[in-house]
């Protein structure tokens, strides 16, 4: 599993999508939320809320990817938290995460919202949240 990196990897689009159809490597932001996909219905038919999550096969994954999956199994975290908890550089973490998203182990939730209207509303929500802490 050797990789060759190039400049392209450094150009990342602004908007984060969780699309699996495209390589996701370039769309991770520091605060993109990452969610474990263990109970995807498309495998292990008949997953019910009572049965434990059933992950895709992790056979053949690198130790680093296994650690990421183990961490993400517990709940949602941002990209930078995953890097921090596992002691991995952010750039490396993004590449590993994008592979895991492409493979269907993980999914992402877009972080920051675009568009003027939602931005004002967001800022107001931030303000309310901060004031509530005083």
């Amino acid at each position: 599993m050797t990789r060759r990196r190039n400049e392209r990897a450094l150009v990342r689009p602004h908007v984060v999508t969780g699309g699996r159809a495209h390589p996701t490597r370039n769309v991770f932001d520091l605060v993109t939320l990452v969610i474990f996909n263990g109970d995807l219905p498309r495998h292990a038919g008949g997953t019910t809320p009572q049965t434990p999550r059933q992950p895709l096969s992790t056979a053949g994954l690198s130790p680093e990817k296994l650690r990421i999956i183990e961490l993400c199994r517990g709940g949602a975290l941002s990209v930078v938290e995953i890097a921090g908890h596992l002691g991995l550089p952010v750039g490396v973490t993004k590449v590993l995460l994008s592979d895991l998203v492409d493979d269907g182990h993980l999914t992402t939730r877009a972080g920051s919202a675009d568009g003027r209207q939602s931005r004002v509303r967001l800022l107001q929500e931030v303000l309310d949240g901060l004031r509530a802490r005083l």
Partner: peptide, 10 residues
């Protein structure tokens, strides 16, 4: 971990 209801990270 984050709350399951979190949708937006800024």
């Amino acid at each position: 971990y984050l709350r399951e209801t979190v949708r937006t990270a800024l």
